[in-house]
Design a binder for these strands. Structure first.
Length: 236
DNA sequence: GCCAACGTTGGC
DNA sequence: GCCAACGTTGGC
């Protein structure tokens, strides 16, 4: 693990989340399950509520997602002196085309990471770059375990408040599956999202737009299928 | 490089 | 617990 470490601190894989974060943090120890399954009662402002709401109304807290979107920055950018670039080509160059998805420092994103199951598929998304969009499919090959970079002082995502006995941050391992048949640009997905907001189509609530800054996002089956179907179409 | 969106922090 | 100031994400 250590070995590909530096290479892979992709930028995107980290972001601290807001309210939720705080609430969860405070809840601290045995909340593991709960965090991923449901928001704490008091977490009013940020994502959880909305997230849950739109998914279903009855048992929203039980929703289980099967597909994901993972953001990664394909262009060089220094963070605390470390280049956080990690493109799909970098992924393909890893041993077994597999990497650990370290550096996530946002509670909501972390909770999604923790709910990922072996074999589930995710879109590999290039963010903060010239052409943002989906470039590949990857799959989860190891479920959540402690992110060692939180204990590494030299890592840009070092967290001095996390203890080894009770690590705050988790990561999963993901493996390259295939490139999408064509690059699916954000602009195109967004155009569908806007159209679907008007006509009730499958992308109307897509988190890429409703939770803009979240680096690890779940997709409903309908969202995943629709986006994947775009690879068969002519680019606009 | 700009800046909108939105998360984080800290004073009170 | 509110909110102003600040920091970060990430599209454009």
């Amino acid at each position: 693990m250590q070995s590909f470490q530096v290479l892979q601190s992709r930028v995107d894989k980290k972001e601290p989340d807001a309210k939720i974060a705080k609430t969860e943090e405070e809840t601290s120890d045995k909340e593991e399950e709960e965090k991923s399954a449901k928001p704490p009662a008091g977490s009013s402002k940020s994502g959880w509520k909305n997230w849950k709401k739109k998914e279903s109304d009855g048992e929203e807290s039980k929703i289980t997602y099967c597909h994901w979107l993972l953001k990664s920055e394909p262009e060089s950018r220094l963070e605390k002196g470390v280049d956080v670039k990690f493109s799909v080509d970098d992924l393909k160059a890893q041993p077994n085309q597999t990497t650990c998805w370290d550096g996530v420092r946002n509670y909501q994103a972390r909770n999604f990471l923790r709910s990922m199951k072996l074999g589930q598929q995710a879109f590999f998304y290039h963010s903060n770059c010239k052409e943002p969009g989906i470039v590949a499919l990857v799959k989860i090959v190891k479920e959540a375990y402690p992110d060692h970079t939180q204990f590494d002082q030299k890592d840009p995502h070092y967290d001095s408040t996390s203890r080894k006995e009770n690590p705050k941050w988790s990561m999963v391992d993901v493996q390259f599956v295939r490139m999408t048949k064509r690059f699916i640009p954000l602009s195109e997905i967004k155009a569908h999202h806007l159209a679907h907001k008007a006509d009730g189509g499958p992308l109307k609530d897509m988190m890429l737009f409703t939770r803009q800054r979240l680096s690890i996002q779940p997709l409903t089956q309908e969202e995943f299928d629709f986006v994947l179907s775009l690879e068969e179409e002519k680019p606009h």
